[in-house]
């Protein structure tokens, strides 16, 4: 089995080759914060936070308009956790379109699986709303603007643990 793709190296080389002078600086930390889960999963209310481009269809079956990277406006969108997967559609563009597909929402926003796991009691329940964040190039914007909004929503919903899914 080939080793995992070295994305940091590859993206930096790629953007250098198309004329960007400054390499994107990936976040780097030597340690991680840690909060142990203090009760069994079957008593936990679980949240889902994703950066994947998933959007709700309106009553006419139209997807919400797409936002673009780098915007300054608030960037967290709520998706009710009881939404049937058929009402969600992918608008993702930042994926490996040559190797895979995003036509199965559950492969990057596992809402049906979480509904089933809550239904059969594997987990205690679901947060009433899941969150979709639009990725931002700025670590500062993500940390000071978007992350606190997600935290406030999870705290308000008394979420015990969260699954986080990047693209």
């Amino acid at each position: 089995m080939a080793p995992p793709v070295r994305y940091i190296e590859k993206t930096q080389a790629y953007y250098r080759s198309v004329g960007y002078p400054k390499p994107y600086k990936y976040a780097r930390f030597d340690s991680a914060p840690f909060t142990p889960l203090d009760k069994p999963l079957e008593r936990c209310r679980v949240g889902l936070v994703a950066t994947a481009g998933v959007t709700l269809l309106d009553d006419d079956g139209r997807p919400a308009p797409m936002k673009v990277l780098g915007g300054e406006e608030a960037n967290v969108v709520e998706i009710p956790s009881d939404t049937p997967v058929e009402r969600l559609v992918s608008i993702e563009e930042h994926y490996d379109r040559h190797a895979t597909t995003v036509d199965d929402v559950n492969a990057f926003f596992p809402i049906s699986h979480l509904q089933a796991l809550a239904g059969d009691g594997t987990i205690g329940g679901l947060a009433p709303r899941f969150q979709k964040i639009f990725p931002n190039y700025s670590h500062r914007v993500t940390l000071t603007r978007d992350a606190p909004v997600v935290l406030a929503q999870l705290q308000a919903d008394q979420v015990d643990a969260a699954l986080l899914v990047p693209v």
């Binding site: 793709v5 994305y7 780097r28 930390f29 889960l37 950066t51 992350a147 986080l164 990047p166």
Partner: peptide
Amino acid sequence: MGLVARHLEANGIPTVTFSCARDITAAVR
């Protein structure tokens, strides 16, 4: 996304992050 996970965890919410980019995940931790 790792940054958001770290923020939630630092504020008392346990998280698990999915990844298809091992090097980026190892850097953000």
